[in-house]
Design a protein around this nucleic acid. Structure first.
Length: 327
DNA sequence: AAGAATCCCAACCGCAAGTTG
DNA sequence: GCAACTTGCGGTTGGGATTCT
């Protein structure tokens, strides 16, 4: 390992545990309890430091440890709790019987974090990332989400409408970014860069005369306040139908759907609800609709959804149109 | 088939909080 | 009140396993 080992100076063993060591530790703790971890290794006949013994016991040998993959319910719980507690792995682990903080931390770092990032969410805030291109997948998936929720047959007309919605939503997201920048600039008395904003807006076609009327209807007092440097909030834009949603709500919808169509239900007990916090008690994770996982889909839950629901594939021409709007 | 790249997780480290004398 | 010790926590790492080229 990269760091100097804490036990080497005492000639204590470190690294992977052998079956024999595991047996010694388990036997001792089952007979005497762990007592003082510092004293335990000598008493148990182990050439390890107490810290190493404690870690081995709590993360691996404890009889109530649950092994195997995380269930969708557990995944859900972790996401929800993490949005509230942050990286408080031990606190999160208390709500997941049989799971250790180390296991949850690893699962977060190797799966959930990547998943959120790929979906355009900030894994720390659980909110959509504000940089425009990072948010593209979720904007595109907005339409898919609507389709999923409404369970409508997919036809060309609705596809076109949703594509148009997604383009419009993307523009608005970009506009909000610009306005946020403007708000930040406006609060800085030394800056004159705000003059560049109208140019940007014109470039994306949102300040042309024909669009100004729609912009004014879209621009709620909240946004305009933001321009004036007060209380600019990232959120929904009135005037366009963007369903209020969150990562959690979307995940829940997917899991509910999945449970009806797959063998996931076998993993959850009858009426079992691992979530210990009510949804109402939690702050919103995001105010912006989320993706359908799409390419970011890396878990079996996503695969199940993909198998059960035929979602539209965005045509190349859609992307061309979309990108040309900002060229 | 073999080497490279990537994933995954057990285990380590240092720090901070809690406990004890 | 304080220093020494213990425990718990979160971040990080090494290396085996798996996947890709």
């Amino acid at each position: 390992m990269g760091r100097s080992p804490c036990c080497d100076e005492n000639g204590l063993k470190k690294g992977p545990w052998t079956a024999e060591e595991d047996q010694k530790l388990t036997d001792y703790i089952e007979k005497h309890g762990h007592g003082s971890w510092r004293a335990l290794p000598k008493l148990a006949g182990l050439n390890r430091c107490g810290k190493s013994c404690r870690l081995r016991w709590t993360n691996y040998l404890r009889p109530d440890i649950k092994r195997g993959k995380f269930t969708p319910e557990e995944e859900q719980t972790i996401l929800q709790l993490h949005s509230v507690l942050g990286n408080k792995w031990s606190a999160i682990a208390k709500h997941l019987p049989g799971r250790t903080d180390n296991e949850i931390k690893n699962f977060w770092n190797t799966h959930l974090k990547k998943k959120l990032i790929q979906m355009g969410f900030d894994p720390m805030t659980h909110r959509p990332r504000t940089d425009f291109f990072a948010a593209l997948p979720q904007l595109i998936a907005l339409a898919n989400l609507r389709q999923l929720v409404e369970q409508r047959p997919w036809d060309d007309q609705s596809a076109s409408q949703l594509q148009a919605d997604a383009v419009q939503a993307a523009k608005l997201e970009y506009l909000q970014c610009l306005l946020q920048s403007a708000a930040a600039i406006a609060t800085s008395p030394s800056s004159s860069s705000i003059n560049t904003i109208p140019t940007d807006l014109e470039q994306i076609g949102l300040l042309s005369p024909s669009r100004m009327s729609s912009l004014s209807s879209l621009s709620s007092p909240r946004i305009m306040e933001g321009v004036n440097g007060h209380d600019l909030v990232t959120g929904q834009v009135p005037g366009i139908q963007i369903p209020s949603s969150s990562f959690f709500e979307h995940e829940q919808a997917i899991i509910n759907c999945t449970n009806q169509n797959s063998d996931y239900s076998a993993n959850s007990g009858e009426g079992e609800k691992l979530l210990l916090l009510s949804e109402d008690s939690l702050p919103p994770l995001a105010d912006f609709p989320t993706s359908n996982f799409g390419d970011a889909c890396s878990t079996s839950s996503c695969e199940a959804v993909g198998n059960s629901t035929q979602l539209p594939i965005w045509s190349d021409s859609f992307y061309d149109e979309f990108m040309s709007e900002f060229a």
